[in-house]
Design a protein around this nucleic acid. Structure first.
Lengths: 339, 339
DNA sequence: TTGAAAGCGCTAACAA
DNA sequence: TTGTTAGCGCTTTCAA
């Protein structure tokens, strides 16, 4: 169809020439400024279409000082990309950037190599684990930034977190109110705030309800299926096995259910399981998984919206949000058969 | 620690002043050009450190015409982000960009909104489904680009694909050679080349081995667990149920195993299952999943490396690679108990 | 080995 | 409503 293509890049000047207007007018059309006559508007649009012209983003950014890219910094610890968390954050930020017409700059870090802050107009830190220094550096540069999935008390930074302690508590108390007394937990990675706080909530619920805290009922996991399997096997072979298990992620809960199945332990009759995440993968099993839902997608979206508002100068006030988790009751928990 | 921060951005000029050299010299130091005296080198480095100076990327790109960002365009169909495929691509590209010091621009598309090609120096299209127009547009602009996970015959574009037909064939023939005659399959999304080709490989293997192709043994899935469950239930309640099932993804295979477990169908004794992906989640079950492994991570890495080579002018020749899948034998397949 | 100076393509006063 | 023009911060000749 189109034969040889123009070898040289076309710039705003080429468009201006063809439309017989100044480059300012072209710029105005590009940026939807209202002060352009219908006639010129049309001519410019024709020329833009003719050349398939797209403005040079670097030049725009340099001239305007406005950078429409948002950096997404994700911790690089092993397994994170197999977590529901990471997927939801990627989906949420991706979606929001789509609608707001922002560029999403994806950056995985282990704490050493920083994202060049000059590349972006704002940064989202998905959790803060080994990358505290990077957050501090961004702060020093006055780069708009926000940490998600973490309540940050010791740094003056914006954040949107989730109350993980509350989540752990809700899950455990639900089990308790069902009548369980022997409750075990497989924790998440305790390096993460989420893992640590969920365990804390678990412990608090036990204490508040005057249930003993048994060390053999706590297995330190890392959100992975492998850990969950080991934990389940350990729990089920205990002389006094638990009647209920709180898993710090749905993935782990699913693996525990699989182990129970293999050992012919009936769920929820003989063993109750509650997960964490509301991972859609957990809906389609034989028994729907009771779990704790977190607004991860929304958290990611909100973070983008906030940064966008700051970068465009529409917002000055900081964000310190703590979202609440929510109990989702399905079929994997029931009252214990023998108390 | 540091009191008030300098409110203004620091530029190459500030650095030059402090180091008492010209901005050219600073530029040379930044870009590691060899023609700088030790003395000046040191002075500039001191000044850079002092100001925590980082060059303005937009200005660099504008001046040099070289853009070190790579766009990753992913199809936005529902469920893609829950697929092993998407995760591996994200991991692989992320990792490669890290080491090559490239920026990764993440873009999800449903085929309508294009990534502005001027934002990046090259584009990776992760599969090509609804976004053919976008690929064509990038090609017209002479943007270096490469399609992965797809063998593209009808477009003059670089690609790295995997031979999915071969994969489907290998999987099915393995089952056949084990002695199975009643083999069913749950396909992937047939809109994707992968889904379609794996089914084709399945059919070819049957034909080549003179086994009948039964319509009731083919369930059109979409890689999701939900579909797999429905399919498994359907297959197992057939008057003449299959003795082996080829699932087009490990996720689906896992769900089929779960269903079999619930129905007390022993694997691999009474039912053999082979998956596709070599998803690490499939290793830790009671029976390790036999599956087909694809070099997804490597494919993503290679794509980045290729683009980098092109963008930096180190490579001119096109890429048309088709990688081979590989059979991974674990425990979920065995000879049928009764032929 | 260095510095001066001309752009890179665009935005945003400002003047008309 | 339009055009002129001075930068934005950097790279890259070119001359010294």
């Amino acid at each position: 169809m189109s034969g040889k293509l123009p070898p040289q890049k076309i710039s705003i000047e080429d468009v201006a020439k063809r439309a017989k207007v100044s480059i300012s007018t072209v710029s105005r059309v590009i940026n939807n400024l209202p002060t352009v006559s219908k006639k010129n508007q049309a001519r410019v649009e024709e020329a833009v279409a003719h050349f398939k012209y797209r403005p040079n983003v670097s030049a725009q950014r340099l001239a305007s000082g406005y950078n429409s890219a948002i950096g997404l910094v994700m911790p690089g610890y092993p397994g994170i990309f197999y977590s529901f968390y990471a997927i939801e954050i990627i989906r949420g930020t991706g979606h929001a950037c789509e609608t707001l017409k922002l560029d999403l700059l994806f950056h995985i870090t282990n704490g050493s190599n920083f994202l060049n802050p000059n590349t972006v107009g704002g940064i989202i830190f998905a959790d803060i684990i080994e990358n505290r220094r990077e957050v501090e550096a961004a702060l020093e540069l006055r780069m708009p930034c926000i940490v998600i999935n973490n309540v940050v008390k010791d740094l003056d930074v914006n954040y949107i977190g989730v109350d993980n302690m509350l989540g752990g508590k809700i899950a455990t108390e639900y089990l308790i109110h069902l009548g369980h007394k022997r409750i075990a937990t497989v924790t998440g990675n305790l390096q993460t705030q989420a893992g640590f706080q969920r365990l804390k909530g678990f412990k608090e619920a036990l204490e508040k309800n005057k249930l003993p805290l048994r060390e053999e009922y706590i297995y330190q996991g890392d959100y992975s299926r492998r850990c969950a399997r080991v934990a389940a096997e350990k729990f089920l072979s205990l002389p006094e096995p638990p009647t209920a298990i709180f898993a710090a992620s749905d993935e782990m809960a699913l693996e525990i259910i699989a182990v129970a199945n293999e050992k012919n332990v009936k769920i929820p009759k003989e063993l109750s399981i509650i997960g964490y995440d509301d991972n859609p993968a957990a809906i389609y099993g034989a028994v729907g998984l009771t779990t704790i839902k977190q607004p991860l997608f929304q958290m990611a979206e909100d973070a983008i919206k906030y940064l966008h508002a700051v970068v465009t100068g529409k917002r000055k006030t900081p964000v310190k949000d703590v979202l609440k988790p929510q109990l989702i009751i399905r079929e994997s928990c029931a009252a214990p058969s023998r108390s």
